[in-house]
Design a binder for these strands. Structure first.
Lengths: 217, 217
DNA sequence: CTGTGTGAAAGTCTTCACAGCG
DNA sequence: CGCTGTGAAGACTTTCACACAG
């Protein structure tokens, strides 16, 4: 029942995601309180921006001397539904794909990789993992059967549009795309592109332009 | 001799980087002309934004009927110095690190991976690659000897601050950090964080907020 | 006195709208 | 016409600055 769907700025959403990760870490360390200043330092923004971000989400104002780590985490997590576990799959099991399959942090933070897909049947045999692997033509079936919400796409550039098309048809609405191409999708589907060459170029360009910034998602 | 250092917006820089990749691909395909509309479609922005982006860079106005792919690529590449080849290294040769070592696109687009570093000597022996590998304590020496400008950091979270500190001391000013921590650096150093869990959360959050956007770097 | 919450001001980025060229 | 280039308008984000709480 989301009724207070006040427009919250996109950069603000990104910062909240990062804040959430940081809060998890603080919680693991047993830290109980945190201030907007500290969070701001981490995010590379002033404290007032952090407070503003939180104010978009927090609709009950009890002005205190600092934030309770646990409460703030629950607030953000509840708002974006990070509290709910989600199933994901990896498509394309080359080096990047298998690295993702083995990436242990996902489980820890509420994402379960429940399937891996690969076109090349020979390669399927060779991969050692606990995750169930399937040939690519089974994407539709397995996505539905396993209630997969998120796909990590790590296929070659020329295969990406086809694969993403199939995923979208299967009902996947959240995609992280490691192939260096931009693929058009319906606008209820969110794609985040992670192109390594692109990233190196951006780092170079920012350096050339002297656009420093404390950090960046 | 950059004298016209007019402030160019950061999002604009990012779009230029993506535009550049796209222009490379068009050039490979032998396409000669491209219009702002088409570039805009790719970037998920209107054509006027593309033209504006280009106008920040382009200081000679010859109004024509479309852009020449080759010229535009040279213009952007020249401005951000993408034309110059750059040396990079990978630090941390776990799964992600070795995937990066093997990532063939870098060479193709002007980045040479000239070194890999790893703490665990046993692992060093096992990795098959053409890239020269070194134990981590040699970072300083090799960075200088090989004139390494860029580092891809793929070590565990708790090792990242230390490693990044060493890299910075060695003179590396451009870092892509795959460890899920934000590390403070001097502000002439650019760090781009690539945190997979973070990305999945952002995709989820955007979806929950119905913040669609045609695509995203 | 330290730190949060927030309306309003300032700043940044995007889009409009139209001149000008082919 | 169709498309580029761009000042100016508009939209969006961030930061300020101060009320308020402990």
């Amino acid at each position: 029942m989301v009724m207070t769907m006040i427009k919250i700025p996109k950069p603000s959403i990104e910062r909240c995601c990062r804040m959430y990760s940081y809060l998890e870490r603080l919680q693991e360390k047993g830290v109980e309180k945190v201030q907007s200043r500290e969070l701001g330092q981490l995010l590379g923004v002033p404290d007032c921006t952090v407070r503003k971000d939180i104010s978009f989400i927090n609709k009950e104002k009890n002005i205190a001397r600092s934030y309770n780590v646990q409460n703030l985490k629950v607030l953000i997590g509840g708002y974006f539904h990070f509290d709910k576990a989600r199933n994901a799959c990896v498509v394309g099991l080359g080096r990047i794909g298998t690295a993702l399959l083995a990436y242990t942090n996902f489980e820890k933070y509420g994402f379960s990789i429940v399937a891996g897909f690969e076109d090349n049947i020979n390669r399927l045999e060779l991969i050692k993992t606990d995750v169930n692997l399937y040939p690519a033509y089974q994407i539709q079936d397995i996505v539905k059967r396993e209630a997969i919400e998120i796909a990590l796409v790590a296929v070659p550039a020329d295969a990406a549009p086809g694969v993403i098309g199939v995923l979208v048809k299967a009902g996947v609405k959240e995609i992280v795309n490691f192939a260096p191409v931009v693929v058009a999708v319906p606008n209820d589907v969110i794609v985040k592109n992670v192109d390594f060459t692109q990233m190196m170029r951006e780092v170079v360009a920012f350096k050339e332009m002297c656009v420093s910034e404390d950090n960046e998602g």
